[in-house]
Simulated assay, not measured.
Amino acid sequence: MSTTLTFVDGPISQALIVESIASFSQQTQIGAHSIFLGQVRKDVLDDKDVLAIEYSTYTEMAQEVAAKISEDCRGKFELQGLEIVHSLGAVKAGEICLFVIAASRHRKNAIEGCAEIVERIKQDLPVWGKEILQDDSHQWKVNR
């Protein structure tokens, strides 16, 4: 199994998500899929609405980090499939910016694997988010 880390420009489309899920259905040894969708929140910072997040990355390093996450989690959770899609550029509040699907023979492995992968992406993947505020000012996002 190879890990797919794909970057897309702007929000992640419903069509891409559906296509990914459909591609996993061809693997009949899989018994469970766990899916995470990350959506940009309309937070309020200093009394200003967050309208969008503009994502940037260091692509080569991100691919290396994603490969390490995949390698670690594939064995630990017996994953049969894994796909990670992350947005780059501007993504408006309410739009999808992160999609992860982890597949395994059993639901517990898929669910726990997906959860760990998302936490490691948020902690380790070199992707930065600049929160665009309603007055056109910005600040760099801090993951909590």
Rank of each mutant, 00 (worst) to 15 (best):
T4K: 15
T6A: 10
F7H: 03
F7V: 03
V8T: 13
S13V: 03
Q14C: 04
Q14W: 02
I17D: 06
V18S: 11
E19L: 10
S20I: 08
S20A: 11
I21Y: 08
A22T: 13
S25E: 12
Q27M: 11
T28I: 07
Q29M: 07
H33E: 06
S34R: 00
I35M: 08
I35P: 03
G38M: 05
Q39C: 05
V40K: 05
V44N: 08
L45M: 08
L45Y: 10
D47H: 13
D49S: 10
V50D: 08
V50I: 08
L51I: 11
L51A: 07
A52P: 02
E54H: 12
Y55S: 01
Y55W: 09
T57H: 11
T57P: 00
Y58M: 02
Y58K: 02
Y58D: 02
Y58L: 04
T59D: 14
M61S: 08
M61T: 13
A62D: 03
Q63E: 10
E64N: 09
E64C: 06
V65D: 05
V65K: 09
V65R: 06
A66F: 08
A67L: 14
A67P: 00
K68I: 13
D72K: 13
E78D: 12
L79W: 11
Q80G: 15
Q80E: 14
G81P: 06
G81H: 07
V85H: 07
H86I: 07
S87D: 00
S87I: 04
V91A: 10
K92S: 14
K92P: 00
A93M: 05
A93H: 09
A93D: 07
G94V: 03
G94Q: 08
E95V: 01
I96G: 00
I96F: 09
L98K: 04
F99C: 06
F99L: 05
V100S: 08
V100M: 12
I101N: 15
I101Y: 02
I101W: 01
A102Y: 09
A103G: 13
S104H: 09
R105N: 08
H106Y: 11
A110V: 09
E112Q: 15
G113S: 02
G113K: 01
C114S: 10
A115W: 01
E116M: 12
E116R: 13
E116H: 10
I117N: 05
I117P: 00
V118H: 10
E119N: 15
E119Y: 00
R120S: 13
R120K: 15
R120F: 02
I121A: 07
L125P: 04
L125R: 06
P126G: 06
P126N: 09
G129W: 04
G129M: 01
K130L: 03
E131T: 01
L133W: 03
D136M: 07
S137C: 10
R144W: 05
